[in-house]
Design a protein around this nucleic acid. Structure first.
Lengths: 336, 336
DNA sequence: CTTGACTCCCAAAACGTTTTGGATGACCTT
DNA sequence: AAGGTCATCCAAAACGTTTTGGGAGTCAAG
């Protein structure tokens, strides 16, 4: 409705002066600056976003990929992250836009659409694979981006990730210290970095303890996937006495399997993610969580620094995993 | 990197012709159209989004307000809704952008920023109040918008909402038919339309049954709010034998209160939202849910029709509520 | 040969900003 | 009075697209 031209005309000034007055440049007198500001306030003037973006060659937008396959990030945490990130970005004049993956289109094509159309200044990638084609594409295009989760890319890139290896190693050692010797692992799809890292953590602990790392079953990162994988392990002749599960959702599925099997109530279990739902499982699910407050704000700050041109090496945060002690990991096991 | 000018030059054509060829106009010959398309494909040309938006005077963006105060689970299935909506909008060339509310700024100011800066073509408002200033503002500006939840605005506006009144009325009648006579209501903040409608539904049922509608406590729409409100009712001399809770989250808090109180296990309870977490509560929480598939796609389609200029009256969907039968609503009550 | 219709193409304007590179005086200095 | 320094302002260009309003050329009909 109202633009610079009209505002300038009504003030008897040029649009240059009005624009510079509003941006606080020193080459407009304090008197006119104030006059301009008042007039702008009165008519509620806001610069047209598209025009500014075109001129400044910045989209003022950051896209975040939504993991649409099942086994998505749990709603509560993800919404908080989104909210924190958007809020923090808004402080720098950027908005967060959702990058859905329309059916029939690959995530790569989606990235291409956003990047080549100059629709975004940066991207936030959520579920990384060990070899992630989106990462390679963005690196080749030189677009700033931050990932939630590492990759095995040779070129370094910005990320925030939990130290799943150490978390799962320690969880496994904890079971060992409690007397368990047959410790199983319910693994997520190994093409995802997080699932692979957690698997390696379990494996390393088993090696350290001189135990065979053979009680492992892989499944989809869902309740059903956890259920099926757990059944697979529980049907073995020498079944595990403790289960380390890649995600809480899988752990909840595993709990269902335990309920269906004789002696299942004597098997200990631990998950990862700290889903609120876990506290209501029976028994309440012990779990792990990434340390640190306001993940979203951290992502936003990394994104801003990436846009500002900081090298990827200085934009990597590997966060420790902390144990959340509830009940499921210390069930009495009568296995003397 | 690549723009119309370069593409046109490389083809020996004018930018007009190239632009029209790509847009499939009839006034460019099939031969050149094909030639242009091939060249565009080869260099991966995509029109600059900001430039097109400026010229077409459309932002190609829709903003969605985020409901979640941190720590609170928020509307059920919100991520799914977001994802479905974004995907559906993308089919029409629109992207979904998150409208955060920076601290110190009201939701109204946030709307103003988006609308006056011409940053969006439409808005999706999520948690409506009975008197919602955002609704009034958008109506006065003539910006297309759709709300999740009705308001008491005199002017009609587009919305999708569950029929909370009927849902809660029927839930209350169901308790009455099961023999309950002291049916309490755990209410949400009454300035929210959904909370008020649910309250009225309970009240209407009590009236119909000739029962006093006095067992009502209001609380924040959180686990803790439900817990406190439930305690309030349970401490009354003639405490309720059944509780109708405004949301699942509050119901889960109420379940916690029941566990702490003598005879609590004999009190029946029902919630609303069908949070996945409810299935894991003990006892599994009976609840209600809005009928209909893919809420996000429905919102998207309403938004598109609103942008196309359809009148608000034809963009209103009131959806029936269906009962989700688990266990918590039929606990044996020994109260003869 | 002229006229009109039709096909294919294009120059220029417009969208609303920000930024560049002065222009115009006023005021001091010498 | 000339030269220099400031303070304040502005015209015009640029960002990359879409759309308007024709302009050539061809062909058939009159």
């Amino acid at each position: 409705m109202s633009n610079l031209k009209q505002l300038a005309q009504s003030l008897g000034l040029s649009i240059t002066t009005v624009s510079r007055a509003l941006d606080g440049y020193a080459d407009v007198s304090p008197a006119t600056r104030e006059r301009v500001r008042e007039a702008a306030d009165k008519v509620g003037y806001r610069p047209n976003a598209s025009a500014r973006r075109l001129r400044k060659q910045r989209a003022e937008l950051v896209a975040v990929t939504l993991p649409s396959d099942p086994g998505h990030i749990g709603p509560p945490h993800f919404i908080d992250m989104l909210s924190g990130c958007a809020e923090h970005l808004a402080g720098a004049g950027l908005n967060l836009v959702i990058a859905p993956v329309p059916r029939g289109e690959s995530e790569l094509e989606m990235c291409r659409r956003f990047v080549d159309g100059r629709r975004v200044d940066a991207m936030l990638l959520v579920r990384t694979k060990r070899h992630d084609e989106r990462v390679e594409f963005l690196q080749s295009r030189g677009i700033p981006f931050v990932t939630n989760g590492r990759t095995e890319s040779l070129m370094p890139h910005a990320f925030i990730d939990g130290d799943g290896f150490s978390g799962f190693r320690e969880a496994t050692l904890r079971f060992h210290a409690a007397g368990h010797r047959r410790i199983g692992h319910i693994a997520g799809p190994q093409e995802y970095y997080f699932a692979h890292a957690r698997h390696r953590g379990w494996q390393a602990a088993m090696d350290e303890c001189g135990l065979e790392a053979d009680l492992c079953a892989e499944g989809a990162p869902t309740e059903q996937g956890g259920y099926l994988a757990a059944l697979e392990l529980l049907r073995l002749p020498r079944r595990p006495t403790a289960l380390v599960c890649a995600t809480d959702e899988m752990a909840i599925g595993a709990l269902r399997a335990l309920r269906e099997i004789e002696g299942g109530e004597a098997i200990s279990i631990v998950g990862h993610d700290d889903l609120p739902i876990g506290a209501f499982a029976s028994p309440p699910l012990s779990t792990m969580r990434m340390t640190g407050e306001n993940l979203g704000a951290s992502f936003a700050s990394l994104l801003l620094r990436a846009i500002a041109g900081e090298p990827a090496e200085s934009l990597q945060e590997l966060r420790p995993i902390e144990f959340v002690d509830r009940e499921s990991h210390r069930r009495p096991f009568p296995e003397a």
